[in-house]
Nucleic acid binder design. Structure first.
Lengths: 333, 333
DNA sequence: CCGCCCGGTGTGAGCGCTAACAACCCGCCT
DNA sequence: AGGCGGGTTGTTAGCGCTCACACCGGGCGG
């Protein structure tokens, strides 16, 4: 910086002012400084800057299994939005999620002195661990619970489940079965609730819930059970809590000779890129992960700038129904 | 740090020594310092440290479409390995890859003064853009080309393709068709070469190559073409360059009434979690992405520690054939 | 018995930047 | 004409840390 100042014939402070877009610099001076910067290929040292401003311009992200389509997409959106806003992102990706691992992750990010934190904390326990940070550093939860007074950005899971269930009822199905995600996942819970609420509103008794762990294998296991129910005509429509499980379910039904959608209709959740090419193409609920990422960053930056809000912020992103070939009116109609 | 020093009754320099595991500190002194650190909940300021050491302890990663299973898994492995080694990771995830976007990404990471760089640069052009950095900062390419004298960690794509093609020939198929990835992707090129080499070694004429863009849709399009060839008995086996395209292919064949594996055998590449639950379960080539991540970090850290190597390093990870239900001997045998 | 060496510790400087303040120039008002 | 205010620039003082070096004391060899 001293070199730049010398070449431009100004003081290092003026260089600093140019770099920080300070208004009170004469245009001619600014140009000379910029030229000198260009000439030297100068880059300011962000460590030194962070040292004095006490801002690292880095946002921490705690995520879980970024190999899955959902978290990976959210992360992608997060990263784009942060970069656009001039922030860096530091990610900790967890294999297993519990109070201990989340605690370690937060420690690691704290060591980095991040300016703010985004927690993709879709599990009850993780959400609790993160909310302990409240007040220390700005935090935004993605897909988190409604509790704890933590600002949250999330897709409206309940609404998505309603969309799915209504679609099936609208086709004439008497009832809708449900293959749920793990009970300690907030998203699984929201989807189960939306399904339940819709059936109850229609005065329909709830079929048993089959619980899975999001994996195709779990869907397959659930599928064998549902194939039995389908053969006796008890099950003609299923709302599956994610597309991967729907894939396993499709496979189990195929093996059992149950036709989709003629015998059983299926709706998934997520709209992974593969869903369109399942056999048959899957009707599902699309989540706009990129939008979630953008809104999360926007909220976090706002929190960093203006300090915490008196009321708890909750931003909701709307899901959308994508109708493909895995749903049809029941055969008996 | 001054506070810690005061409480422990030592100088700030001794505190620094304890923090850096300097050997010449008396155990009693060390304990006092550690106790003081504990008491105050002290955390050292990494910006200040970076300012004087000129090391940020941060590694940059340039990746492409981290939404895909392969890159996402590699990233996950990278992140784990870096964290274990005490490094932070800064990721730039690109939507489109070309000289300009890669250049911007590298700029962004340079601004952060990363200690080293990992480039997931599976495209010819990207690899070229990255190799321009050579010498400036340590760089390791993941899945990069063999050119440019850049250290590379990669899965042996050619070997994987050989495994797939041999498997099909071993089952008695006269020839093997190939649905390739985009020509400018190094992985697509490696797989195509492995397939070609194997057929040539067996003295078999090459069927036409169908080129796709990795998407299920491209596989679907390719599948319609191959369905025609299958009906006339010209195609009985296909090696598809990734699992997503294989899914689309499966779907197209299903629609055309071509049975898999009775009429046509299919082998994919990647072993995505869904592959096991395709209809039918897909025979494919598994890549150990986590291992690639670990080896990349290990190599990069070594480069950072000991400086550049005289000879070009190339670390290869072996792929594995996973046999499932999408392959069988040809009907005519 | 002296001096040297080495383990353990303290002192001072400075990494590159920004914040606060001082200094200057200029036009304009009194 | 003198002074005042605002725009523009320079000067100084750290931010919290590590490095280089000085220092101190005790064991050991000459």
């Amino acid at each position: 910086m001293a070199d730049v100042a010398r070449i431009a014939g100004v003081s290092h402070q003026t260089v600093s002012r140019v770099l920080n877009h300070h208004p009170n610099v004469r245009p001619g001076t600014r140009d000379r400084v910029l030229a000198a910067i260009e000439e030297l290929g100068y880059r300011r040292n962000l460590s030194a800057r962070a040292l004095v401003t006490r801002r690292t311009n880095t946002l921490g992200v705690v995520a879980f299994d970024t190999t899955l389509y959902g978290p990976a997409s959210t992360l992608f959106g997060l990263e784009q939005a942060a970069r656009d806003a001039g922030y860096f992102i530091s990610i900790v990706s967890l294999k297993t999620i519990n109070r201990k691992t989340v605690g370690e992750a937060l420690d690691y990010l704290a060591a980095q002195a991040v300016d703010g934190l985004i927690a993709i904390a879709p599990q009850v326990e993780a959400a609790a661990a993160v909310s302990a940070l409240q007040g220390h550093v700005p935090v935004v939860a993605v897909e988190g619970g409604e509790a704890d007074g933590m600002p949250v950005v999330a897709v409206d899971q309940t609404r998505g489940a309603e969309l799915a269930t209504r679609h099936l009822l609208g086709l004439g199905h008497r009832t809708v079965w449900h293959v749920a995600g793990p009970a300690d996942w907030l998203e699984a819970e929201g989807r189960r609730r939306g399904w339940q609420r819709t059936l109850e509103a229609a005065g329909i008794a709830l079929p048993p819930v089959v619980e899975g762990d999001w994996s195709p294998r779990a869907g397959y296991t659930a599928g064998r059970r549902i194939a039995n129910a389908a053969r006796t005509g008890r099950a003609t429509a299923v709302f599956v809590s994610n597309d991967q499980m729907a894939l396993g379910l499709l496979r189990a039904l195929h093996e059992a000779g149950v036709r989709v959608p003629q015998d059983v209709s299926i709706v998934g959740f997520d709209d992974i890129p593969e869903a369109e090419f399942f056999t048959p193409p899957l009707t599902t609920i699309r989540q706009d992960f990129a939008e979630v990422g953008r809104k999360s960053i926007a909220l976090l930056l706002d929190l960093i700038e203006t300090g915490p809000r008196p009321e708890t912020e909750r931003i909701v992103v709307a899901p959308a129904l994508v109708v493909r070939a895995s749903t049809a009116p029941p055969a008996t109609t």
